[in-house]
């Protein structure tokens, strides 16, 4: 018994160490955001400020000093629309694949799997030329469309896996009662799938929120830049302040961490189900 207890204590210490190591960069991020400017470049470095200040957070939120709120709004528009489109189009497609006879279903399904292997970087050159030809260069719409490349196949497969777990008998009963297929989807399948839909929305939102590649190529007007490209540009402008960059980094991460925490259980479930499937 004693040996088991000792083993447990040792394992708990080990877990604590791993967790501390994993989160330490975020502690530094917060600590630096709260440091007065001189302390963030002092040597030897300090982990936590002696006298914490909120001035950097205040600066970040002042549009005259730092265009953070504009970038934030742009990111919100891009990530929100990408997630919305992926969820609507994905739900319809996934429902059809899971529940309806679609001609050529098998080929279409394996086709979406091949699409999994395309990464944004492979398509960035043709998309750049296509968007330029269509006059979409330097528009947020271009970034939205491009972000769908990396998210729509995953959205289809995550939602499809979930829809398959809803028993057909539920819908059959509803069809007997005179509901149409569309009503079935709207009144039965979608409400039951709300956790899955939420987690797909969050998943796509996070990918679009994080995107640097597409935004860096398709956007050139500072008015339209999203957080990753905007912050990066600010960082290379030489007059950056560490505290301000860290405060901006924290505020950039905050929305995705919050919405992820809200759906954590179902999103990690969906991730593992989808991952194992493919």
């Amino acid at each position: 018994m004693k040996r088991i207890r000792l083993k447990n204590v040792l394992l708990n210490v080990l877990v604590t160490l791993v967790v501390l190591a994993a989160v330490s960069p975020f502690v530094v991020m917060l600590g630096t955001a709260l440091k007065p400017s001189a302390e963030s470049v002092a040597y030897p470095p300090t982990l936590w400020p002696k006298r914490p200040t909120l001035e950097h957070f205040a600066d970040v939120l002042k549009p005259a000093k730092f265009p953070f709120s504009r970038y934030f709004l742009n990111s919100l528009i891009v990530a929100g629309s990408t997630a919305l489109i992926a969820v609507v189009v994905g739900s319809l497609g996934a429902y059809a694949f899971a529940k309806l006879p679609v001609p050529g279903k098998k080929y279409l399904l394996s086709g979406t799997f091949v699409v999994y292997m395309f990464s944004g970087i492979l398509l960035v050159v043709p998309l750049f030329r296509i968007f330029t030809a269509l006059g979409l260069y330097d528009s947020r719409l271009a970034v939205v469309i491009a972000c769908l490349v990396s998210t729509l196949p995953a959205a289809l497969s995550m939602l499809g896996n979930y829809f398959k777990t809803i028993p057909d008998s539920l819908e059959e009963a509803a069809l007997m009662d005179g509901l149409t297929r569309v009503q079935c989807l709207w009144k039965i399948v979608l409400p039951l799938s709300l956790p899955a839909i939420m987690s797909v929305f969050v998943y796509v939102f996070m990918i679009a929120w994080n995107d640097f590649l597409f935004a860096s190529i398709f956007l050139s007007d500072p008015e339209k830049m999203t957080l990753p490209v905007g912050l990066r540009q600010f960082f290379s402008s030489k007059d950056y302040v560490w505290g301000r960059m860290m405060a901006a980094s924290l505020l950039t991460g905050l929305p995705v961490v919050i919405i992820f925490a809200a759906v954590e259980k179902s999103i990690t479930g969906g991730l593992t189900a989808g991952g194992v499937k493919s």
């Binding site: 791993v18 967790v19 994993a22 989160v23 960069p25 975020f26 530094v28 991020m29 630096t32 963030s40 470049v41 002092a42 040597y43 470095p45 996070m206 929120w209 994080n210 640097f212 957080l227 990753p228 912050l231 990066r232 960082f235 560490w242 960059m245 860290m246 980094s249 924290l250 950039t252 991460g253 995705v256 961490v257 992820f260 954590e264 990690t268």
Partner: peptide, 25 residues
């Protein structure tokens, strides 16, 4: 807590790593 690094945006994490590993301080 362990999921934090996976969820956090790349740009945020990159900035801290540059700060942590920079050659001056």
């Amino acid at each position: 807590a362990l999921l934090l690094s996976y969820v956090s945006p790349v740009i945020s994490s990159v900035f801290v790593w540059i700060y942590l590993f920079n050659g001056l301080y």
